[in-house]
Design a protein around this nucleic acid. Structure first.
Lengths: 253, 253
DNA sequence: TTACAATTGTGTACCAATTACACCATGCAT
DNA sequence: ATGCATGGTGTAATTGGTACACAATTGTAA
């Protein structure tokens, strides 16, 4: 909980270094072994949760800003990030609760202005992440998609748009490079897809299809130690993977 | 060509009414009878062309802003608009030439700041449009895609991203409602697709596919007066069309 | 050690969608 | 009436997607 003086300093500094009226909100999807969660922060004096976000430095490219913001919140560099929509309703605002809003006059209040927010979604392995609260939150943590809290502002809309976009883009984009270990089995990769899409896929058809993309290398070894038949290991063929990211996986017309 | 005083007034007013640091750029694709053009403005003292664009009023939703900007530039209301990307490099700027930039000190110069630009593309029938220059242009006109001029700033990137996005979205979105007359023939609609994609399509397969979408009504009449066999007329089934716009034309996984 | 349960590897038959392709009909121009 | 350009339509071949079953491996429990 910030004091009035801390707030004043905070806002004064923000006005100095950040571009006004532009913000970034990130929907960070975390995956691990069939689980899918979303990174959220709990407002430190409201029962409302919000998405990681921040502002753009005056001379900073927006992609860099998104990277920087997520680096602070998660500890991870070079996260897979995808811009997906701008949220620009005039009545959305970055301020995180009414209490702060009233503590300073409006014109001094960097946060109590209109912000156009650029929405990004990110995909990470949540075991690699160290969730770190910001100055307005008492908690930064993973929330299960089936147990979402009350969202602040338009953050539920942002979250849902991100999820829809992710599911749509799964059809045209390869995925998983930064979510799977270096070597992984086909069932493990399938579980990732099933988790994102929230539905079961046919093992054989999944395999045929994903192999058809040509983005996997089949390794000689199998994964020992499991309680059952040892599955083959695969790794991503990075060259083809990158190419597929650029060119997409399907054509049309 | 604006005088220094006019510029001062312009900028003073802009700072009053517009949100700083946020702009909109629109790639307006115009179609008519197999032609495809893009609406551009010619800077009034540089050999550089730019895309229609503008700013967001302090309390205006961004979609409204895009509508408003295009209404002024084209005379058309309720244009089909699609947000496709934010362009946020720190060295892009809305200022339209260096001459204006030097006429006033930097801090008074609304335009000489960093702008994050939200890219929209629009699809119109260019016979419905009255191209109207803005204060920084001597000319507002349609340019053929095969004969593009030198672009200002990052407007070539914006244009190309828009075109790529349009072609991609053609696979998932119905198109043509606001580009075709109320009643049209199948070959006419096909020509629209061929124009956008810049390639020939097979007549029979095109017909089967587009009919399969269920967004067309086949009418009883045929188009008389042509030099050849009279083709059937079609109109859009608006209800299905709207539904298809929302839900997309294909699934995946 | 053996039987069992769980999981993986693999192939095929069916249906749907896409592609390639050809013939006939219409209507104006001569 | 004939020719020519265009529009209407159907079918076969290919490709892609879906549904589905059986054999092999491995650890565990009897």
């Amino acid at each position: 909980m910030l004091t009035k003086q801390e707030l004043e300093e905070f806002w004064a500094e923000a006005s100095e270094i950040y571009l006004n009226h532009v913000s970034i909100d990130c929907v960070v999807f975390g995956f691990h072994e069939g689980q899918m969660k979303v990174l959220m922060l709990k407002s430190n004096n409201e029962e409302a949760w919000y998405l990681p976000g921040g502002f753009v430095l005056k001379k900073e490219p927006i992609e860099k800003a998104a990277d920087r913001i997520l680096k602070v919140r998660t500890g991870i560099d070079k996260i897979f990030l995808q811009q997906f929509r701008v949220f620009g309703d005039p009545d959305r605002s970055k301020i995180h609760n009414d209490m702060y809003r009233d503590m300073l006059p409006k014109e001094q209040n960097f946060f109590d202005q209109r912000f156009i927010s650029i929405g990004y979604y990110a995909l990470v392995d949540f075991f690699n992440v160290t969730p770190t609260p910001d100055d307005f939150s008492e908690l930064c943590t993973w929330r299960d998609l089936n147990d979402l809290p009350k969202f602040q502002l338009d953050h539920r809309l942002i979250f849902e748009t991100a999820l829809d976009t992710l599911r749509l883009q799964l059809n045209y984009q390869p995925i998983g490079y930064n979510l799977m270990p270096k070597e992984f089995t086909m069932p493990e990769l399938q579980k990732l897809y099933e988790t994102i899409l929230d539905k079961k896929l046919d093992r054989r058809n999944f395999q045929r299809r994903i192999l058809g993309f040509g983005i996997l290398n089949k390794l000689e070894q199998t994964r020992k130690g499991g309680a059952h038949k040892a599955p083959y290991l695969y790794s991503f063929n990075l060259e083809n993977y990158q190419a597929a990211l650029k060119e997409g996986l399907k054509s049309g017309w």
